[in-house]
Design a protein around this nucleic acid. Structure first.
Length: 473
DNA sequence: TGCTTATTCGA
DNA sequence: CGAATAAGC
C-alpha cells in the first residue's frame, strides 16, 4: 500500500462485523489504522465501565492482530490526537461511527471541522442505533414521546442488512506508536477489587455471538414469559456488548426478525426491548435534558429527601436496606457490574419512592457500577421509574419489593444467591461481595442482617403524600 | 413493565 | 373464606 492510509477512529463500535465506517475504510482500498483515543469523555465513564472497556479493547486488539492489523491507542484531546497521527502517518481520511449524545456530538462536530480544515476527508457513518434520531417523526413532524407509537412507527421498517467482518485489514507500511493498555491502567479507577467484576466479563465480538446463539436457541422462545424472572438466566445478556458496540443493534434486529418469521414466540418481545434502546437515544437526542434533569420540567418542584438521610443512600448502595430483593440486586450489581432489568426497576423504585431520593443519586451509582453503562437507557429508565420522564404512567407507581420478589423470585433463589444471611453455607456469589467491597465499608459476612430501613407500608403512603403535595403545588 | 382496596365469585 | 376481578390512584 503506497497511498495515504485511512484512520478508523473507534469509539463505541468495538467490532469488525457490520461496521459501516470500517467497511468504508476497506472500500477506499487504503491501509487502515484502527485508532482508539482515550479522551476526556472516556476518562469520565464510571469505574466498572472502564474495566469493561479495557477488556473490550483487549479483545478487539486480539481480533485485529488475527487479521493482520493492530489497535493503536492514544490519549489526549481527540482533535489533536487525530491531527497529529494523520500528520505522522500521512493519513488522508478519518472515518467513524456516529454517536448521538450531546457531549459526543459536540466533540465530533469540532473534530470534523478541524480534520477538514487540515485538508483531510472526514466521514461518519450510522450503526450505533437502528434508526438515527432524526429519521423517526410523528405525523406532525415532532419526535415521539411515548413508546408505543414509536414502536409502531419503526416495527415494519427495513434495517440495512449487516455486512460481515472482513478477513483482513490492509496494514500501513509503518505502524504508528501506540500507548499500551497497561500504561492506561483503566482498572485503577476502581477503589476496590477490580478482579471480582473482571471475572464476570466475557468481552469481545466472539463472546457476544456465543451468548447470542445461546439466547436465540435456548431462551428466545420463552423470553416473553421468563424475561422478568430474577432467578433464571432468561435475558439476552446483550447490554454490555451493545454499550461498547461489540455487536450491532442491526445484527440483533435481523436475528430476532428471522425468529419472528419462524413463529418464535418471544422474538417480538425482544425486538421491542431492543427498540427501547433506540427510543432512549431518540429522546436524549431531541431533549438532552433527559440525561441530567427532569424531563418533565415541573418536577423541579418535587420535594426529594434532603441530605440528613444520606445514611439511607449508603445502605442502598451497599445492599443493606434490610429489604432482601433490593439488597440482593444491589450486591449483584456490585459483584458483576450488571443487574437484572426487573431488579433495576425494583431498586430504582425503592430509592426514589420508598426512600424518596432523587433519581440522579441512583443513576450516578449505576454509572459507577455498571459494565453496560449507557447514559440514554439509564436516564430514561430512572426517570420512567421516578415519574419525571416521558411515557409516564397516569398514576404514581410504587413497586412493592415484597410482591415483586414473590412474583419474579418465587423460590427465593435470586435472594439466596446474592445474600449470605440466614445461610449456613452461603453461595460463592454472596461471599464474593465481601471480596469486592472497599475496606472502608467495614462490612463482614458475619454481620447481623440489617433491619429494614423503612416500613414498606408507611414509606409508600409517605411517598404518595409527597406526590400529592407536589401535584397540588 | 403496579398496588391497594372493595367487591364478587365459588367452593 | 380465600381467590379472582374491577376500580381508582
Amino acid at each position: 500500500m503506497t497511498s495515504a492510509p485511512v484512520i478508523w477512529w473507534i469509539r463505541r463500535d468495538l467490532r469488525l462485523d457490520d461496521n459501516a465506517a470500517l467497511n468504508a475504510a476497506i472500500a477506499s482500498r487504503r491501509a487502515i489504522i484502527p485508532l482508539f483515543i482515550r479522551d476526556a469523555l472516556v476518562d469520565n465513564i464510571g469505574a466498572a465501565a472502564k474495566i469493561r472497556l479495557e477488556e473490550g479493547l483487549k479483545a478487539l486488539s486480539r481480533s485485529l492482530r488475527a487479521r493482520g492489523s493492530k489497535l493503536i491507542l492514544r490519549h489526549g484531546d481527540a482533535e489533536s490526537v487525530l491531527l497529529d497521527l494523520a500528520k505522522k502517518s500521512g493519513a488522508g481520511m478519518v472515518v467513524w461511527s456516529r454517536l448521538y449524545l450531546p457531549d459526543t456530538i459536540e466533540r465530533d462536530r469540532g473534530v470534523k471541522a478541524a480534520v477538514q480544515a487540515a485538508g483531510l476527508t472526514a466521514r461518519s457513518y450510522a450503526g450505533h442505533v437502528l434508526f438515527e434520531p432524526w429519521t423517526v417523526q410523528t405525523g406532525q413532524g415532532d419526535h415521539y414521546k411515548v413508546y408505543t407509537p414509536f414502536w409502531k412507527a419503526v416495527r415494519s421498517r427495513d434495517v440495512v442488512l449487516p455486512d460481515s467482518a472482513p478477513d483482513r485489514l490492509p496494514a500501513p507500511e509503518h505502524w504508528p506508536d501506540s500507548d499500551t493498555l497497561s500504561q492506561w491502567n483503566l482498572a485503577a479507577a476502581m477503589n476496590r477489587g477490580a478482579g471480582v467484576v473482571q471475572k464476570h466479563i466475557a468481552a469481545g465480538e466472539a463472546a457476544a455471538y456465543e451468548r447470542l446463539a445461546t439466547f436465540l436457541d435456548d431462551r428466545l422462545n420463552e423470553y416473553g414469559i421468563h424475561r422478568d424472572r430474577l432467578d433464571r438466566d432468561a435475558t439476552s445478556g446483550m447490554s454490555d456488548y451493545l454499550s461498547l458496540g461489540e455487536i450491532s443493534p442491526a445484527r440483533l434486529w435481523h436475528a430476532a426478525r428471522r425468529h419472528v418469521e419462524e413463529g418464535c414466540k418471544g422474538a417480538e418481545t425482544y425486538l421491542k426491548e431492543l427498540v427501547w434502546r433506540d427510543f432512549a437515544y431518540h429522546l436524549a437526542y431531541h431533549t438532552p435534558r433527559l440525561l441530567t434533569d427532569n424531563w418533565r420540567e415541573e418536577w423541579s418542584d418535587f420535594a426529594w429527601q434532603e441530605d440528613q438521610r444520606l445514611q439511607a443512600v449508603k445502605a442502598w448502595k451497599q445492599g443493606r436496606t434490610g429489604v432482601d430483593v433490593v439488597d440482593a440486586a444491589m450486591r449483584e450489581l456490585y459483584v458483576t457490574g450488571r443487574m437484572h432489568n426487573r431488579a433495576r426497576m425494583i431498586v430504582a423504585s425503592f430509592l426514589t419512592k420508598n426512600l424518596g431520593f432523587h433519581w440522579k443519586i441512583g443513576m450516578d451509582w449505576f454509572g459507577d457500577c455498571l459494565i453496560d453503562w449507557d447514559p440514554a437507557s439509564n436516564a430514561l429508565g430512572w426517570q420512567w421509574v421516578a415519574g419525571s420522564g416521558p411515557d409516564a404512567a397516569p398514576y404514581f407507581r410504587i413497586f412493592n419489593p415484597q410482591t415483586q420478589a414473590e412474583k419474579f423470585d418465587p423460590d427465593g433463589k435470586y435472594r439466596a444467591r446474592w445474600l449470605a444471611k440466614n445461610h449456613s453455607d452461603p453461595s460463592d456469589d454472596a461471599l464474593a461481595f465481601y471480596d469486592a467491597i472497599p475496606r472502608s465499608w467495614n462490612l463482614s459476612v458475619d454481620d447481623d442482617p440489617p433491619d429494614p430501613l423503612v416500613d414498606l407500608k408507611k414509606s409508600r403512603t409517605d411517598a404518595l403524600d409527597r406526590y400529592e403535595r407536589f401535584r397540588n403545588g
